[in-house]
Design a protein around this nucleic acid. Structure first.
Lengths: 317, 317
DNA sequence: ACCGTGGCAGAAATCGATTTCTCAGTCAAC
DNA sequence: GTTGACTGAGAAATCGATTTCTGCCACGGT
């Protein structure tokens, strides 16, 4: 692995000159040619580690998401990647698995790696960002906000989505619409359920909402289990609003061919899966979230130091 | 961001001593306590960049996969991650999108980042690994082999899988079994098709195999299109072997409710999707591939310098 | 009592690139 | 002709941690 010193020696110049040539700083053309030739011959690749140590900055951003197996988040990640790669940044993808300790471990890594920035879909409402913020590393919260910090944030209007989906089921003629949402600690899960609760209170005024609200884990197995528990109720609902795509898949599996129960799922089903007949699927702007978050981060990296912004995307694109 | 010098100053010792304490090298207890206290108070986190530069090694491995949206590869990635995290390594996930230029870009990054090792599912048969190999960075090929290099490799017996799946369709009574496989440049696609070809030649002796073999892109849309083109043939097949999971989903979508056509898919369907009635799905040991590849890499990182190994996993776990 | 040994901590070199500082040489103006 | 501004390239400092080299001190043996 050639170093800048070897290139310098071969070109008969000082390392400083090599550095200047490679960084586009004015140097007489004769020298520049010699340097470039030497670099070429030695197959020189700058050592990023040394570069980063000296420059005290890196060209890598961390993207921390709670579930790498959920296409919603991989689509979001794609959005981030596309923008970041265009800007010459690399993205390292970190999977927190909805676990706070894994999340803080990755944040710790981002810190000690001196990464240029972080885009975070927090696993908990109150992630510990003190250290990162103290370094003034720019952080953007995406999909879920990070309470306790004044961060750039990109989210959707989850309450409205919950209302819309629930409203649609009532409009189809169902009389009791239940709700399967995510972990009670996750903001999107709370908000989507809140949307449902508003409509439920209005449309099923006698009923007890808590009996028809199930918190689960945002994954396929959780959706399946939640649907099973709802059907086991003494007075089962005749429709259900499912607050994310994977639980939607699970719920539809649990319903199998029983099409007496109406279902509305928030978030595109993976891989263009066909929903069961009669089910409705409300798309979410996953990729758009990623793109927008990356844009905000890039602005910060370019020196923007205005106040934190909060962008709420239309949840029904 | 505190440095080791500040910790040293606060503890009233030299930076060398701080380093020794933090790395578990014998130091008198009195000093050790002072250092640990100072580090605690200053919230000291070692600068990985400096560490890496000095140690000339990193604790990060790159995992390069061709499609982050394919659950087969995310499962594989999970396997790698689990093993790597246990061993104290971080994994950065790189998505080559089946494109050679993106792949070599990420390999370039791995190189200049001096990553500890690379696990690669090559997008092309002949990836350019000269530079990486020259650095003697350990590389493990997974799922697909890297021709032209003598690398540790973990693959499955794709030819056998192709045979098994095709055989099963003929055993079910179908008379002409077509094959939808991946890009002609991808080894697994070639091998799975080869398995099909062997059985096809034997069971449909008169027919022209090339008419019933479609190369597509290993994604849902490709499976859909391929199936449509097969059905448009003058003498359409009455069954089809689909060589990966996502194309299987697409093919089943294209068939919709037409259950005259038999189908066998290689690789678990995403998210526990139910195959259409009568379809068979042959699972693949995706996670196991990742785990095994990580194990091989870890052995190399621990100094194993034996000859390259080639591990062929049972494709039907 | 003196010399050799070993342990422990500090000083300094090191990793590889960037950047500031320094200095030699050029050219123009007075 | 001399001075001063300017250009361009090399020397050296720097980033923050690790590690080798040094040297001090205490202890033990003769």
């Amino acid at each position: 692995m050639a170093t800048i010193y070897e290139v310098a020696a071969r070109a008969g110049v000082s390392p400083a000159t090599v550095s200047r040539v490679l960084n586009g700083i004015a140097v007489s053309p004769a020298y520049a040619d010699r340097v470039l030739a030497a670099a070429e011959e030695l197959n020189y690749v700058p050592n990023r580690t040394a570069q980063r140590l000296r420059r005290r900055s890196s060209e890598v951003i961390a993207l921390v998401i709670p579930d790498i197996e959920n296409p919603f988040f991989t689509a979001l990640a794609r959005g981030v990647e596309d923008r970041a790669l265009d800007a010459g940044l690399s993205v390292v993808l970190c999977n927190s698995d909805e676990q706070e300790d894994k999340e803080s471990r990755y944040l710790q890594v981002a810190l000690s790696e001196h990464m240029a920035g972080v885009i975070l879909a927090p696993a908990s409402d109150h992630p510990d960002l003190d250290a990162i913020v103290a370094m003034s590393t720019p952080v953007v919260a995406v999909d879920r906000s990070a309470h306790g910090y004044d961060l750039d944030t990109v989210v959707m209007d989850d309450v409205a989505s919950g209302r819309t989906a629930t409203e649609r089921l009532y409009a189809e003629g169902h009389s009791v619409v239940a709700c399967i949402t995510g972990p009670a600690t996750v903001e999107t899960a709370q908000n989507r359920a809140e949307g449902w609760r508003q409509v439920f209170a209005q449309r099923s005024p006698g009923a007890e909402p808590d009996a028809y609200l199930v918190h689960s884990n945002y994954r396929v197995d959780g959706g399946q289990a939640a649907m099973a528990s709802l059907r086991a109720l003494p007075e089962p609902p005749d429709a259900v609003f499912v607050a994310n795509n994977l639980m939607g898949v699970g719920a539809m599996q649990a319903l199998a061919t029983d099409d007496a129960v109406g279902i509305a799922v928030l978030g595109d089903l993976p891989f263009g899966m066909f929903p069961r007949p009669g089910a409705s699927v409300l798309p979410l702007p996953a990729r758009e979230l990623g793109v927008t978050a990356a844009d905000l981060l890039l602005q910060r990296l370019n020196g923007d130091i205005g106040p934190a912004r909060r962008i709420v995307l239309d949840s029904a694109p």
